[in-house]
């Protein structure tokens, strides 16, 4: 996984709540068997509208997405995270995330940043007033900085450490393989097996 320490970039204001993963990437784009090449599917239906914010050249090259609450609800498709990464995003700021999306993002080096609604609204206003405003997402300090403003965001120590180090979960778990084997020896033998 890519490391995430401190990222500074411009930001896109997405003034919508309940941005579900079907909006982030519609199911027709999920037929591919690769992990890359999903940028063309990102917000595909909304991008058909010339007024959609991602079509605004002022926000081209932005790497931080600022959205309303319940971002990434719905389907478990990790393709939503891959599509955001492929487009160039490194962080999404929202008051609340869907659980599965949040977990997926943490696995793929896309930082889900939870800020309260007033902070999100302040950021929306700021980046609409000045699309070139630099927004810094600092995982070391667990804070977002933009202009003169600083907002702290929560993230558990373990997830933060994994991202800072760019660690892969499977390798971490395999360090405890003996414990897994010991657990398997204790499992009731009547539990179902399909082979």
């Amino acid at each position: 996984m890519d490391k995430f320490t401190v990222h500074t970039g411009t930001a896109v204001p997405l003034r919508r709540s309940n941005v579900d993963t079907d909006q982030i990437i519609p199911a027709v784009y999920l037929k591919r068997v690769t992990k890359t090449g999903f940028a063309d599917g990102l917000f595909n239906a909304w991008r058909a509208d010339p007024d959609f914010v991602l079509n605004n050249p002022a926000y081209s090259g932005a790497s931080v997405l600022i959205a309303g609450p319940e971002f990434g609800t719905g389907s478990s498709r990790e393709h939503a995270v891959w599509a955001l990464r492929d487009w160039g995003f490194r962080a999404v700021i929202s008051p609340r995330f869907g659980d599965i999306f949040r977990g997926n993002a943490l696995k793929d080096g896309l930082l889900p940043v939870e800020l309260e609604q007033p902070a999100v609204e302040a950021l929306w206003d700021a980046v609409e007033a000045d699309p070139t405003l630099a927004v810094t997402v600092d995982l070391e300090a667990r804070e977002v900085r933009a202009g003169a403003n600083v907002w702290a965001f929560p993230l558990d120590d373990f997830s933060r450490w994994r991202l800072l180090e760019g660690l892969d979960d499977i390798s971490l778990t395999l360090r405890h393989e003996a414990a897994v084997t010991a657990f398997e020896e204790r499992r009731p033998q009547w539990k179902p097996a399909v082979i």
């Binding site: 992990k35 478990s76 498709r77 990790e78 393709h79 995270v81 599965i100 977990g103 997926n104 696995k107 793929d108 979960d169 499977i170 971490l172 778990t173 395999l174 393989e177 897994v180 398997e184």
Partner: peptide, 18 residues
Amino acid sequence: FGIGTSEVEHVLATQTLP
């Protein structure tokens, strides 16, 4: 519960999930 593809790989490899 539902999981993402990274977690699918994790379960395939280890039969566990953190």
